[in-house]
């Protein structure tokens, strides 16, 4: 049986390596981390492992950081959480510092500027794609349509800050759920206790 210190160090190494190869987003590191924690070390089952990323998505903040703290503390207590956290943060921070510095030094070259303009167009495509993909996972009804249209138009034409849009839409969502207590399927399925009636 390994001590928490050994487990913590392994978690640091695992997260660090997985994150180093996770381009595009932190979620890309999950398969590597799963291989280490579930298949190799058998510290968690497959089902236990995947509850964390799902949970992380429902919370405010950085999903990979949530994951690392949940898994780390479950496996090796506070030290495990700390080491996993450091393993997640370090690659992103160090690599981005290097890339940012490099980017600043080549930005004057006209060919590089052309390439950057091309890349900026791709940024628009990727952002738009993420927005559309997010909306395909949302329940399609009148309330959703109103919220989406408001979230596009209010900042675009009336200068509303996205902070207020998120806040107000969150409150509207709360009202919609709490104002309809009898409504079937409005989140009440979780409330019904299936274990022992």
């Amino acid at each position: 049986m390994e001590s928490n210190t050994q487990k913590g160090l392994y978690l640091f190494r695992l997260h660090f390596i997985a994150m180093m190869f996770a381009f595009t987003s932190g979620m890309a590191a999950l398969p590597t981390i799963e291989r280490g924690i579930v298949e190799k070390k058998k510290w968690l089952t497959h089902e236990e492992f995947w509850t964390y990323p799902v949970l992380g998505q429902t919370l405010p903040g950085v999903i990979s950081v949530h994951n690392s703290i949940f898994m780390g503390s479950r496996i090796a207590g506070p030290f495990g959480a700390l080491m996993s956290l450091l393993g997640v943060i370090t690659p992103a921070f160090v690599c981005m510092l290097g890339i940012a510095a490099l980017f600043q030094s080549v930005v004057g070259n006209t060919y590089i500027q052309g390439a950057i303009r091309g890349i900026r167009v791709i940024s628009v495509v990727i952002l738009l794609g993420n927005g559309i993909r997010l909306l395909t996972t949302v329940k399609k009804d009148l309330l959703t349509a109103i919220l989406v249209i408001a979230a596009v138009l209010l900042p675009l034409f009336f200068g509303f800050s996205s902070f207020w849009v998120i806040l107000v839409c969150g409150i509207v969502g709360l009202i919609s759920v709490f104002a309809a207590p009898g409504a079937p399927g409005s989140g009440s399925s979780v409330q019904t206790r299936e274990d022992g009636e």
């Binding site: 429902t58 628009v124 952002l127 738009l128 993420n130 927005g131 559309i132 997010l134 909306l135 996972t137 949302v138 329940k139 309330l143 959703t144 919220l147 989406v148 249209i149 408001a150 979230a151 596009v152 138009l153 900042p155 675009l156 996205s162 849009v165 998120i166 839409c169 969150g170 409150i171 509207v172 969502g173 709360l174 009202i175 919609s176 759920v177 709490f178 989140g187 009440s188 979780v190 409330q191």
Partner: peptide, 24 residues
């Protein structure tokens, strides 16, 4: 239900905001 309700509103808002951001 609190988190569920919050999400009911925030998810569409985030999607809409991403579209606003891409337009701008």
């Amino acid at each position: 239900r609190f988190v569920k309700g919050l999400f009911r509103g925030i998810k569409p808002a985030c999607g809409g905001l991403l579209i606003y951001t891409s337009i701008t």
